[in-house]
Write a protein that binds this DNA or RNA. Sequence first.
DNA 1: GTAGGGTTAG
Length: 563
Amino acid sequence: MAQTQQALILLPKMVKSPPLKALSLFTSSALQGFQHTHQSISFILHLLISSNLFSHSQSLLLKLISGQISSSSFTPSSLFHELTQPHLDSFPTHVLIHEAIINAHVRSQLPEQALFYFNQMIGRGLVPGSNTFNNLLILLIKSNFFEKAWRVFNETKGNVKLDVYSFGIMIKGCCEVGYLDKGFEVLGQMEEMGLSPNVVVYTTLIDGCCKNGDIERGKQLFYKMGELDVVANQYTYTVLINGFFKMGLKKDGIELYEKMKLTGIVPNVYTYNSMICRCCNDGKLNNAFELFDEMRERGVACNVVTYNTLIGGLCQERRVLEAERLMCRMKRDGLSPNLISYNTLIDGYCSIGNLDKASSLFNQMKSSGQSPSLATYNILIAGFSEAKNSAGVTDMVREMEARGLSPSKVTYTILMDALVRSDNIEKAFQIYSSMEKAGLVADIYIYGVLIHGLCVVGDMKEASKLFKSLDEMHLKPNDVIYNTMIYGYCKEGSSYRALRLLKEMGENGMVPNVASYNSTIQILCKDEKWTEAEVLLKDMIELGLKPSISIWNMISKARFDNV
DNA sequence: GTAGGGTTAG
């Protein structure tokens, strides 16, 4: 009570001072534990805003939201309610107060509250500037409230000042949640409003096309921007080149890369990294290193990603020693290996079965100040289980949990897979139920491991039951699962079941592996279902797969007998 | 400090 009085005593003094002096009176008294009131805060905020001291009003609001400045006479929300009441204030200040409150909630990462004050502002017929609106959109999208962002965008776009950024932000949001059509819709709205999309907007949407698997539309947009004289830049080319590569369209990617250089757009580190990554994935390490040299010649500085990509490429070719040497070179180059560098190299050593080296790198990583992630543990756990070192596995799981990291679905997959591979299907199911108890929902990989386990032990009844239940769970079986089921059916001699799944794979756009063809044909032959066997044989040859010798023997014998 | 690109793990 006494303190409230003090604050009231302070008010006349603040009124008489210039804005910054008044503010310092306010903050120093607040720090001394003064209980401020609606009046004193309202006064100081209005003063700061009407004097254009926005950063000061902003930091004051942030302190109020975070509770750094508090008072027993109000809560932040009662205060903001009071502040935004329509009263006799001059109109511009009222707009600015609303905006300041919305911005402060945005900066405090409080999407729901920011949205609340935004809606209140619109409801009062006030028009927020595009900055305020755009920042709100960004926060909503970043906080996974895309639907809210979409609704706000569409419901209020007539009452807000929109600019190119607003549309760009919204398009990016659409692409991120996979609503490509909506992204194009926004582009259309933008054009209708007479705003010309710039290169950033086009690049964002082209990237969205690539990431959502619709490279064709991305390509069309690229042409469209050319027709509209919007000049593609390094970003645009890199996005599309990478998109081509991701879709396996190697030729188009390289062609565009050449076109980029011809047009005089210089490839930068992103472009090179994308190119190098493609070479590595194709196992063309020589080309990758040629590009690496070319970068140096052209003065494009490589970065951690460049090195990581090359380290990964070498590891995939099992050239792990060279990968480690490259990591040393990276350090000499003044770049510190990051989490991905270590994870990649540790995985490399695990894959050649050198767990000692993997462990020592793991220690090196920790002593260099890089903290292991869940992925690091998963890699090591996979390495130890592959090496059938169960003590190593247990240690890793223990250390991981001691660090406060809980096993992820990937961890469970690895553990269950190891058990299945050592014929311990019951234990695998036990792990499966402990996973469910931990609140994790099994995904297609987990079911893949379980189905594999059931097929290995020959329990096709259970395997088929599980396989059929995938559909009810809205999970699409992947090619691994199909191949596993086919393997299981062949083993038990159910040729027609295997054949049906083989066809189903094709209908779903998957290519069965050689083993599936070989074993299905084999049992079809055994059942003397020659016509079906011949058809499959033709299919597999067309796909470029090599039938096994025994199949040739069986088939040619049948042909001979029939003649 | 409002929108755009590249690398790892089942």
